[in-house]
Amino acid sequence: MIQFEKVSKIYPPNSVAVQDVSFTISQGEFISLVGKSGAGKSTLLELFLREEFPSEGRVLFQGDDVHLIKDSLVPEFRRKVGAVFQDYKLLPNKTAYENIAYIMEVMGAGEEDIVRDVSEVLEIVGLIERAHHYPAQLSGGEKQRVAIARALIHRPDVIIADEPTGNLDPYHTRDIINLLIKINELGTTIMLATHNKEVINRLGKRVITLDGGRLMRDEEKGKFMI
């Protein structure tokens, strides 16, 4: 489903973010990218989301090179991906409900579908009571649950999560990871970038370890080893 083929990203003049990284992710997989800060985890996710272009190599999604997609078709590609970020990236002037509904509006869904699906997903993330609160009125854990609900609402083929628990306490971390596991069990591919040892060890899923931009290990049931 997703392939990184000999991907390198070098920022001028010669700062190496990612070097010669190759791996493949199958449909329905849950993979974790681990490594220290600056190891290249976020760069790989940015390359996949087409926020960045590789210096060498290519990134394929469902057989297509994401960096060869025409500019006008990039929004359509991004709608196939759900993204969760450490800093939540919620629209500050929209309520939790509206932040989630925004994706469906972007996709042109009808009002009835939006009301039904958003309420359903708010129920899943346990925020139905907080639906009409603005991000500034929510706790970190609640914001991240809204972000997950937003990533999930349009049933994307894959969800990428970049340090989604980076700003959360252990209780909320467990909460968020459980949600991601649940989503994965429903068939969505998950790419999780984290440097949280406990999360990785608890998951018992595939782990790709990066160091200095290079792929060090790719283990089916990996552990956190840096």
Binding site: E51, V81, L91, Y102
Partner: peptide
């Protein structure tokens, strides 16, 4: 600008 970046990342078209 952050808001615009979020909209782009979630797949909103430029006109949206």
């Amino acid at each position: 600008r952050d808001e615009i970046e979020i909209m782009r990342l979630v797949g909103a078209s430029n006109w949206f």
